[in-house]
Design a protein around this nucleic acid. Structure first.
Lengths: 240, 240
DNA sequence: CGTGGCGTTGAGAAGGATCAACTTACGTGG
DNA sequence: CCACGTAAGTTGATCCTTCTCAACGCCACG
């Protein structure tokens, strides 16, 4: 039998975490087995159906969550009901604004999702202990900021056709977190209405532009929710 | 004579920092006098004129900078020249994306600005030493993310009239970093062209909406670059 | 007294929104 | 298994907001 070594490998990776999407790429990658084991005492896995609300704008946050599978839709609404989707989160992102008392967005499961719920105090105490963890969380925030700014260009300066192409390109390159290569055939995680709210367009305009891309042979619409992109470079050209 | 105490107050706040806008509110607020003194060995103050480029998109970053006075414009351009302003930075923000090898945006002085230039290695070594500093930087990134998402709603879902009102409201509430109260009379840090690029509108549309707000008595246009808002609540109502 | 940069105003064109009809997919219950 | 109902998506016609193009005003500067 191997002697017990006095280092971080005293502890083994918890069984639940061994096959977890967030174990290495997500924030848990910054934790050693000991910390991970401690954290798992207060976490729990849940499955949410598409459409379920996970967090409401201006409501207190009681927990964070690692996205393990599926897509989360982040949105904001104006008083009169106009809605804007301000971001999508894919595995292995952390859901929830760190250190904020209340949410600044509404979070909703866009597809069926698996989450690893982490109580707010559990994560926050770990954050103050581990600079490596806080660093990971900061790097995610910075990446989200870059993505938000990229999308501002799409919202402010692109035509409807370019917007829809940009959306399809985004999904093709983000839908599978395990795969480094973009997908050529995938399910859309959003309805036409949500796509419109993401792009600042109406459902009708989204639909027309999708039909146009199909007519031009840039995408195939297998099913309303499933598209296939034979040549990603050609789609990229349509993004403006 | 007081005995020297073995704590952080062994060191005095550097003279240059004593009257600095970033000393308490900005990232330097996370540093003790010792760290601050060490940092000032490699920093230098510079003044930049409106229009000077501080950082180019996709170019290597050699330094960060604290904004001490004035407004920085962050923008992105598409290949064909279409431009989008993706954010404004006011004192005492930190300019420059932490830990990134190259910039993801173009940064330009919108007004005359004073900066405290910090070499990249100097800040980054401090960041790895001080969890408190990294925490501040993360909090700024999270605030910027919130602001970017708020602006996405403006870009995606508001009318031209609401966009221009939102811009004026943003400036009124951000232009003076020392003042808790919004300003009722202020200089616009952006030209009409830049305002258009911030709002995803043309110069002409910005101009027409400004004239309309003036005709409706919501704002007074003292000078092209100086406006006065007698009733901020009325302006707020126009923001949608 | 030009000249050029910046801003405003007007007329016409165009892109996307709105309103409305129709299609497709899918679940439910007879 | 099919009739029905409903939700989601598509397509067409028309309207309206914003863009485009053009002329003009203001002001600083040589």
């Amino acid at each position: 039998m191997q002697t017990v070594r006095n280092d971080t490998y005293n502890f083994e990776t918890p069984v639940l975490c061994q096959s977890c999407a967030a174990r290495h790429q997500g924030i848990c990658g910054a934790l050693n087995p000991e910390q991970l084991l401690e954290l798992t005492k207060s976490t729990r896995r849940v499955r949410k159906q598409a459409g379920e609300e996970l967090m409401a704008d201006a409501m207190p946050i009681s927990s964070y969550a690692n996205v393990l599978r599926g897509v989360i839709k982040l949105s904001k609404v104006l008083e009169d009901g106009r809605q804007q989707v301000v971001g999508l989160q894919f595995a292995p992102d952390l859901l929830g604004r760190p250190f904020a008392a209340e949410s600044r967005v509404t979070a909703e499961a866009a597809s069926e999702v698996d989450l690893c719920i982490i109580p707010k105090p559990a994560l926050e105490s770990l954050l103050t202990q581990s600079a490596a963890l806080e660093h990971r969380v900061m790097m995610q925030a910075l990446r989200e900021l870059d993505e938000a700014r990229d999308w501002m260009v799409t919202l402010g300066r692109k035509s409807a056709a370019e917007k829809v192409a940009s959306f399809l390109y985004l999904i093709a390159t983000h839908i599978d977190p395990t795969d480094r290569e973009p997908e050529t055939s995938f399910d859309l995680p959003l309805s036409r209405a949500d796509i419109g709210d993401f792009l600042g367009l109406t459902i009708e305009t989204v639909s027309r532009q999708m039909s146009k891309l199909k007519a031009d042979g840039v995408v195939e619409i297998v099913n309303y929710r499933h598209v296939s992109v034979p040549d990603l470079a050609r789609l990229r050209l349509r993004c403006g």
